[in-house]
Every structure is written in C-alpha cells, then in structure tokens.
Amino acid sequence: MSDDGGAPGVHRVTRRTADRGESARASRLWWEHAADEYQAEHGAFLRDTGFVWGPEGVDEADARLLGPVDELRGARVLELGCGAGQCARWLRTQGVERVVGVDVSRRQLQHARRIDEETGVGVPTAQTDVQNLPFAAGAFDLVCSAFGGLPFVPDAGAALTDAARVLRPGGRLVFSVSHPMRWCFPDDPGERGLLAEQSYFDRRAYVEEDTAGRAVYVEHHHTMGDWIRGIVSAGLVLRDLVEPEWPESNQQIWGGWSPLRGRLFPGTAIFVAAKPAG
C-alpha cells in the first residue's frame, strides 16, 4: 500500500493482477517522482549512514541480523532497492569495503550521489530492477534489502531465486518487507486501521492507475507462507524470522505505521536466510 505521495496522475486505486513488466515500470515511474519527498520526509529517520530495517526503527547496529561486523569487513555485499544508499553507506562506515547498491530509480540514486559527496562515504550503485540482477552467480557473500525492491515484485519466488543465484555457497540473504497481515487492514495509522476489511488470502496487487488505466504504483501482497516457500524454493534455509514490536521510544507516524497499530500487531517482517555451503 502506498504510504508516501508523489505518484503522477493517480486516477483510480484498485486491486488486480500486475505482471513483471508492468510492476517494474510502475515502480520506476513512481519513485522517480516520489524520491525527493521521500528523502525530505524520512531522511532524518533513516540517517545518511544508518541501517534501519523498517518504520519501527530496528537498527542493524543493535540487531546484528547480517552477522558480526568483524566477519562482514571482508565480505562482498549487495543491497537491493538501496534508495539513497543509507544502509550500504553504513556498512562502509563499519569497514565493509566491497558494497554495491542497486535501485530501479535514477532519482533515488542521484540522492545517493548527493549524500556520498556530503558525507565523504561513497557507495557504487547501478540502476536496475531487482527482478533482473546484472551480476554473476556467486558474486556476493551477503545480499540485503531493507524495504527495498522485494515488496514490488509479483513473483516472490523468482526474485528470491535470483538473489540466491548471486550468493556464494554459505552466503546470507536478509530482507525486510511489510508484514503480510497488514494487508487485511486499511492503511490508516488511527483507529480505522485496526479493523480488518479484506482477506489475507487475496493476493491481487494494490495498484494506482492513471486516466488510461496504466499502473503508476504497484505493490504486491505475498503471505507469510509465500515468502517462506520462496526462500525454500530458492534453495535457501530460513535461519530467523523477526517481527519487531513497536518501541516506546518511537512516537513517529510513517504512513500506515504508527505506535497505536504497532503495539497491537507487527508491521514489518525481517527474514534471515542462508545458502547451504555444500
């Protein structure tokens, strides 16, 4: 569900199927227009060099879901849907030299270059859809994504399989997405957002269309089982599943995420998976 404005010419909101090509086009179009507003509104929370897993504020500096920093320093790392590169840049500040970020939006990557110059911490990036990773098999020791491109793909299994392809044996995939149960509820941070209105099992995408019926924003719903089956079908092993509780210290509202809702049910799911070494 769209939590931040910026999509051009939204005429109608609907639930329907959207294929791989339409989804990629819509994501690119929406983020080109939304990037400036998104970074202005959320940049302070994300921090120029910070690794935040979601609106709850789970910080990788504390959670260590990627593994011990000492082990990461020699790793080759790929961040999917890197936005302005905040997470990848944090890894660089921890001594991880070989970090690459990819994002579908050129404008998001322009913000990454701006922050690189402001902080003096540079991250190599490439503009690409996470459904078509332009890297060789086994090129990375770690693939990570904090609300990056994965919520916007129609086939979770195919995207996870490609992420697993670029991992070396023994490598790790860690990613966060909207918790699947959020799809039962209106994207409202208040009392209305506590009343379930639609089926958890309705896998039709959330689509914003222009006047010609073309998608300008698409987000896909995959159940918890879908994500787990996707991980398994990609040849990975699920090591952990984190459903963060909303901390008392976080009083901000981020679209449909809020202290009210976050203290009653999870808004984020973080999956930790590994590629067998054999």
Rank of each mutant, 00 (worst) to 15 (best):
V123L: 13
R20E: 08
A88Y: 00
V77C: 06
V69W: 04
T268E: 12
F45R: 06
A158I: 15
G256R: 01
F271P: 01
P55E: 02
A137T: 13
V143E: 00
D4Q: 15
G85Y: 00
F185M: 07
G5V: 15
R106V: 02
V69K: 04
P180S: 10
S27N: 15
G170C: 07
G190Y: 01
A61W: 06
E209R: 05
E41A: 15
G67F: 04
Q110R: 14
E191Y: 12
Q198M: 09
K275T: 08
S233E: 08
S178D: 09
V99M: 03
V143P: 02
D141P: 06
R261A: 01
Q39T: 08
I270V: 15
F152R: 00
G43Y: 04
F140E: 04
Y206A: 04
A159D: 13
R229L: 12
Y217E: 04
H33L: 11
L91T: 07
A156G: 10
M181K: 13
D155L: 10
R20S: 14
D59W: 05
V102I: 11
C184V: 02
L194W: 10
E37V: 15
Y200A: 01
V216M: 11
I270Q: 06
G21C: 12
E209F: 03
P8W: 15
K275W: 08
V100N: 01
D240E: 12
V52G: 07
G171Q: 03
E22Q: 07
L78Y: 00
R114C: 12
V232F: 13
D240R: 12
W257A: 14
N132Q: 13
R89Y: 08
S233N: 07
W30S: 09
R20C: 09
P8T: 15
E56S: 15
P259R: 12
E118A: 15
E219D: 03
H179R: 05
D62K: 09
A137M: 10
D48M: 14
P169H: 03
D19F: 08
A7H: 09
L160N: 04
F147A: 11
A139C: 01
G83Y: 02
D103R: 02
D162V: 06
W257T: 07
A61S: 13
V77W: 00
E191M: 15
D103E: 10
L91W: 05
L109F: 03
A159H: 11
L173H: 07
P244V: 01
Y206R: 05
V216C: 13
Q39W: 06
F135W: 08
C82K: 09
A126F: 03
L150N: 02
D240V: 09
G190W: 04
Q251M: 11
V166L: 09
E22D: 07
R28F: 06
A277D: 10
E219I: 03
E22H: 07
F147Q: 09
P151M: 06
A63Q: 06
P55S: 10
N250E: 13
V10Y: 01
A112G: 11
G95K: 14
D188E: 12
A234Q: 01
L195D: 15
F147C: 08
V272S: 04
G225E: 09
G21P: 00
M181N: 08
P276C: 11
S249M: 12
